[in-house]
């Protein structure tokens, strides 16, 4: 007998206002880019279904407003996250400098069981702008930051030109899945932890195959 279930992975996207969080998400999920995005107010939400190592996975991606003042509204989304994606704009130093704050704030609000091993991913976005001439944060600088934070995986992306977006989100999904598995093993053995907002995902699909018996 084989047991198949759709695993739900909850991903939170954080970063300063205007770094391209909504654009990255939409490029990944809807494969399009537009100049006509509104500034995100409150939070937005998309899902994408994919397969990783033969597992059916649903990515539930929460896009948040970048302005600091909205952080207080984020608490409800942070809890139960499987992965946190930090985004900065390679052309704006301040958005890179804010990363420490976003990192810290997330851990504080989400309060994961083991903050040291909780999976983050860093995306340096807008590498297409002006052929890279306006870039102020070097790849090395970004990688050094990642190294200082338990080796966070790093991707340089362009939501506009669709560079590295798929690869980055694939990594996000994989990392989230690995984290989720680890959590399962540690805490509950074979029983999936019941998390915030998706108990309906725990419907198990049983299928009988003679070769499995």
């Amino acid at each position: 007998m084989s047991m198949r279930r759709r695993t739900l992975l909850k991903v939170i996207v954080l970063g300063d206002s205007g770094v391209g969080k909504t654009s990255l998400m939409n490029q990944y999920v809807h494969m399009k880019f537009t100049q006509q995005y509104k500034a995100t107010i409150g939070a937005d939400f998309v899902t994408k279904e994919l397969q990783i190592d033969d597992r059916d996975v649903t990515l539930q991606i929460w896009d948040t407003a970048g302005q600091e003042r909205f952080q207080s509204l984020g608490v409800a989304f942070y809890r139960g996250a499987d992965c946190c994606v930090l985004v900065y704009d390679v052309n704006v130093m301040k958005s890179f400098d804010s990363l420490d704050n976003w990192h810290e704030e997330f851990l504080k609000q989400a309060n994961p069981t083991d903050p040291r091993t909780f999976p983050f991913i860093l995306l340096g976005n807008k590498i297409d702008v002006d052929g890279g001439n306006t870039r102020v944060v070097s790849e090395k600088k970004a990688k050094d930051w990642c190294a200082s934070k338990e080796n966070i995986p790093y991707f340089e992306t362009s939501a506009k030109e669709d560079i590295n977006v798929d690869a980055a989100f694939h990594c996000i999904a994989k990392t989230a899945l690995a984290n989720e598995r680890e959590q399962d093993m540690k805490q509950y053995g074979f029983i999936k932890q019941w998390r915030f907002g998706y108990d309906h995902y725990l419907v198990l699909h049983f299928s009988l195959h003679s070769r499995d018996l």
Binding site: I41, G42, L73, F77, Y198
Partner: peptide, 21 residues
């Protein structure tokens, strides 16, 4: 039951008085 909380859908209603979307 579904763990839906107004901050997931209604914050922009109040912040922009329905003018956002």
């Amino acid at each position: 039951r579904e763990m839906i909380n107004p901050s997931m859908y209604a914050s922009q209603w109040f912040i922009t008085v329905f003018s956002y979307s």
